[in-house]
Design a protein around this nucleic acid. Structure first.
Lengths: 183, 183
DNA sequence: TCATTTTTGTAGCACTTGCTACATATATAC
DNA sequence: GTATATATGTAGCAAGTGCTACAAAAATGA
């Protein structure tokens, strides 16, 4: 039993990097098992089923993202919208968290078509993001702050979407335009 | 031969509404055929293969979107960023084009994982959108206009993403916050 | 009318999917 | 040491995938 959980953890870690590099393109049990360096038989011994594997891996990734965000800005620090946009996009794009954002977009799309377990995961990630942005906005009114947070998150996610279809340059332009126009 | 193309057109139309209502969840040849009210054998008689079906359907939908957008604003009319954001989101959300946007997000996600034919289609739609926004911005400098267009498109797409995970209310808030803060 | 082309149905192939039955090895408990 | 629990391999099943071979019907041209 002790070994089982340990092996499960090892497999999970490898599957996480697999998902971050290949997205949701190769999520068959045999493919996930191969990524973990084990047989599909063992993968389904460590995990309940395929859904369990994906839920565990995506939840773990999502938790790490939240931690990275939390670590990036002191808990009580408040920032103006244009600055927060710059900081957040810088934090979520490219090397830093580009793979995570891309994976997140894929999860939302899967959620859109009602696939389990993506719906709950996408919602969870989005909610966490929203709370984090809200917590660091220097806006008095709670309603206004909530609205501004929604807008900033939409912008950040939209830039991730944009960069999938075009290139990083275009995303860069969008960030700068947003920060500048909001000042 | 004449009948073949006519039947193909009929099937295509039904498949388009199928994609708009169910997204990319049911895109198997048998499922597409059922949506068109024909046998899978006939679907693959009218079309080269599955990719051909999807390319044709999604291209047609994309063309209609572009037409709707073009019809919404006179070709030579220039608008300020905050106003264009309000108009564009109003145009692309809810009853009007919500299904199309949702489908578009799914295409981008499929493009992210390198699935044919989604990559080229997503790029095509994004590009068309970008050109349309650019054409109606009342900004002198071409560079600034390009950047602002990217930002607006990111915002609109991001709102579509946001509404998949949360609700329309949240998207509403984001739109209003953006329009207000940019004034 | 007869030959040719276009249209349609039946059946199935080779492959992938998630998952499981069965057997065996290995470790642990008494 | 023996019994029980844990761990792992082999093989395969039922369903679904995209697609095709074969043949027959229906339309078309001469």
């Amino acid at each position: 039993m002790a070994k089982k959980t340990a092996q499960r953890a090892k497999a999970l870690e490898k599957i996480e990097t697999h998902l971050l590099t290949t997205g949701l393109a190769e999520t068959g049990v045999r493919q996930l098992a191969a990524a973990a360096g084990i047989s599909d038989r063992m993968l389904l011994y460590y995990f309940e089923d395929k859904t369990d594997v994906l839920t565990a891996a995506l939840s773990s990734i999502s938790a790490k993202v939240v931690m990275t965000l939390s670590a990036a800005i002191p808990p009580d620090m408040k920032i103006s919208p244009p600055e927060l946009i710059t900081i957040t996009t810088e934090l979520t794009r490219g090397e830093a968290m580009g793979a995570e954002m891309r994976l997140f977009v894929e999860c939302v799309a899967a959620a859109a078509r009602g696939e389990v377990p993506y719906e709950s995961i996408a919602k969870q990630i989005m909610e966490g993001f929203l709370i984090w942005v809200d917590a660091h906005l220097d806006i008095e009114s709670a309603d206004e702050r909530k609205a501004a947070a929604a807008m900033i998150l939409a912008l950040v996610d939209g830039i991730a979407l944009l960069e999938i279809c075009t290139d990083e340059l275009r995303g860069d332009m969008a960030v700068k335009a947003a920060a500048q126009m909001l000042e």
